[in-house]
């Protein structure tokens, strides 16, 4: 087979797949801009596209104490707290496991590995009971506190920090820096790629999470976007353009963040695969 024939075959196949992968989101975007009476039409004039369904969706929930703006804010707060927590806690833990020597290190590393393998559902009921005893149901505490660390990120951090040469740290010691000082001033700036991986993976995971919010939150004003979308989808079942506006509002932030951090996402996923 000549190279051109092979390449054109390859491009055809890749494009066919790309269409299947991209079509649903394009459909959502296109439909969200149409009027309800145009939804069934394949092609509508560009002058008929508008943001009415977005306005409809945004205003509809305003009086119910929830609303898209509130859900956005809830999601941003939840995701922000978790991403920050995961970055700080896993880099500190990863540094300890990679560069310090202390009794119990092996056990702690085994804990990290074992916890990664256990499905979270395993502990959901006891956590629910704890939350309700603490009065945390329907609060940000329930959505964030238990998830401020994740063993996967500790593992990624440890692997990454292990590759930083010790000479750098020895030089810092010579200059009279404490180990904690060396962590903040030498290690942390060098772990930017691993931090970027943690940010993108925890951002997408938290933003999209449904199981945790749906378990601990049932008040409309504490809904996250994904929960709100699920409710709006049922309510606007017959108004496809409004539901699709909800889909777009929910997914656009993730897609933007993903496009910015894409390189680190791919590296992160690839490295768990190869080393795991």
């Amino acid at each position: 087979m000549s190279k051109t024939v092979k390449n054109s075959f390859l491009y055809t196949a890749l494009t066919a797949f790309a269409i299947v992968f991209a079509l649903p989101l394009f459909y959502a975007l296109y439909t969200s801009l149409k009027d309800l009476k145009d939804v069934e039409k394949m092609v509508v004039g560009i002058d008929r596209l508008n943001f009415d369904s977005y306005i409809r969706l945004i205003t509809h929930y305003q009086n119910a104490g929830g609303g898209i703006a509130v859900w956005y804010l809830n999601t941003i707060i939840m995701t922000g707290i978790i991403v920050a927590g995961c970055c700080i806690i896993s880099s500190m833990a990863g540094f300890s496991l990679a560069k310090l020597n202390f009794p119990g290190k092996k056990i702690i590393f085994i804990i990290v590995l074992a916890t990664m393998m256990i499905p979270y559902h395993m502990i959901l009921i006891p956590v629910y009971i704890m939350m309700s005893k603490l009065g945390w149901l329907n609060t940000f505490a329930a959505l964030t506190v238990p998830y401020l660390y994740q063993c996967l990120y500790i593992f990624l951090m440890k692997q990454f920090i292990s590759t930083i040469p010790n000479e750098l740290l020895e030089a810092a010691r010579m200059d009279g820096m404490t180990k904690i000082g060396a962590f903040f001033r030498i290690i942390l700036p060098l772990t930017k790629p691993a931090l970027a991986t943690t940010i993108i993976i925890s951002f997408t995971g938290t933003w999209n999470s449904y199981l945790i919010p749906t378990t601990f939150v049932n008040k409309e004003k504490m809904y996250t976007l994904v929960q709100g979308l699920n409710a709006a989808k049922d309510q606007f079942f017959d108004r496809v353009n409004v539901t699709m506006a909800g889909v777009i509002l929910t997914t656009i932030p993730v897609i933007i963040v993903f496009l910015i951090f894409q390189k680190y996402y791919i590296e992160g996923v690839a490295s768990t695969g190869i080393k795991g």
Partner: peptide, 30 residues
């Protein structure tokens, strides 16, 4: 180092505390 143990556990403390309360305890409870 002489104070490694202290430093290490100080840096691991947030993880270990959260893990004990929000993973290990509910795991046993389950």
């Amino acid at each position: 180092s002489d104070s490694d143990i202290f430093t290490a556990y100080l840096l691991l403390a947030p993880f270990l505390i959260l893990w004990l309360i929000w993973f290990f305890y509910p795991f046993i409870q389950s």
